[in-house]
Write a protein that binds this DNA or RNA. Sequence first.
RNA 1: GCGGGUGUAACUCAGUUGGUAGAGUAUCGGCUUCCCAAGCCGGUUGUCGCGGGUUCGAGUCCCGUCACCCGCUCCA
Length: 490
Amino acid sequence: MHKKNPRCAIAKNQNDTVEKIVSLAKRRGFVFQSSEIYGGLNGCWDYGPLGVELLKNVKEEWWKAMTYREDVEGLDASILMHPRVWEASGHVENFTDPMIDCKQCKARFRVDTLTELISAKNKEKTIKELDPSVLSAAGTLEEKFSALLEDPDKSIKLLELLGCPQCGNKGTFTQPRKFNLMFKTFLGPVDDSANIIYLRPETAQGIFVNFQNVANSSRQKLPFGIAQIGKAFRNEINTKNFLFRTREFEQMEMQYFCKPGTDTLHYDEWKERRINWFKSLGMTESKLRFHDHPKDKLAHYAKNATDIEYEFPFGWGEIEGIHNRTDFDLGRHQEYSGKNQQYFDEETKDKFIPYIIETSAGASRSFMAFLVDAYYEEEVNGETRSVLKFHPKLAPIKAAILPLVNKDGMPEIARKIESDLRPFIRIFYDDKGAVGRRYRRMDEVGTPFCITVDTQTIDDQTVTIRERDTMAQIRIPISELLNYLSAKLR
RNA sequence: GCGGGUGUAACUCAGUUGGUAGAGUAUCGGCUUCCCAAGCCGGUUGUCGCGGGUUCGAGUCCCGUCACCCGCUCCA
């Protein structure tokens, strides 16, 4: 009866759905805007009482699925890392492209690739206008032009003289802006450029640099993985779509180290395991798909890459990436650190740098996908019932305890049940208002079970359990409650 | 970053040509209620996003700014 009808049946359009969820998230304490009383902070969100439970459950299920295995170890690396890490990883080089926009035609250009779009004749003419002495200096026209573009003082004037390659207008460029996606901060109390370090833009590097530590201390042999959950930070140009693109986010990553030649096999295996994880927690299968990266668009480190995408109301969006990173990362860290990152295979007696299969899921994005996927509006007796059909393992509150009326000894029995269950299960006690209203309140926050104490309870020590999705009730003895619920939550 | 839209109670929204801010829902306290947002009585809730300006007077007009949404762009 877990029917998966289109959740937009009542919502007027897709945008309404996100807005309703954002509203519900705030009203019921899932997600608040960061620093809200100060007007908010762009792209930052706080998890409220129910949100933190849902997020914790998502992470816990991931942790169990990924590390309760013989071949995967856990790790929790520091957010701050040695600056050389980000040189080795390629982030320093690749995260700092100055960009300009044409105010006229709205085209955007990377300054470092702008030179390719300008004709030689035009370059010469523009340089002559700006500073004729440059032309007589050594070097090719390309080099001179690029040098001017990179010069912080001269590039501004150069850009004023250049026509936009797309629309031809002059003087329509914005100032060049550096989009450095890594957050900078300072190690130590002195704001000295020598002390610049970064907030990690991904958790992966913390795993790579600990490869030898974990291998040596855990006595693992290839193939094996290292898993980590943690915050990462990217100074995104645009934040967008609620929790989907934020500047601070949480990743759930597992890097699987394997022998070259076996990498494709492991890549395929982890692809299947990872999409099945989302399915096993109730995510609608038709809203999940792989999006394989075309070979010509792969990142510099990858041999193969795919995204697990979820169909959000605003379209398909990546919730997890699975990449074959080859020996790029360990190779680079070996090169930059000077420390050997090879693995010695006892059986074949050969040494090699392991290949890495990466599974990198967004905890915040998964949170949002599970939240959006669970949201339904249903017609019940002419009224709209809004309900979050979370998998019981993910539900923030597992069960509510409701005395049908506040008299005849029912509250006393209900309170006794509450105190018996509370050490084991996240529960909620509610005696306010009509029971129908209480059921609906629990539906709205996704509580899978409601335990109701009624007159019959007083006679025979049984209670009803009302199931969220079907609204059907069964009656069981109070003494069986914990067993019953535990089985359902397992 | 550009363009467009929106910011008024916890939520959804009214608010007239500028004249001391409202509704529904929610929430809280009662009464009533034996199973799906029922009813009755009463109570609480506001930096009108923020800052300036115009004005005797600004939620309303102007400027700036912040945040959110949509589109473009971006997303090693």
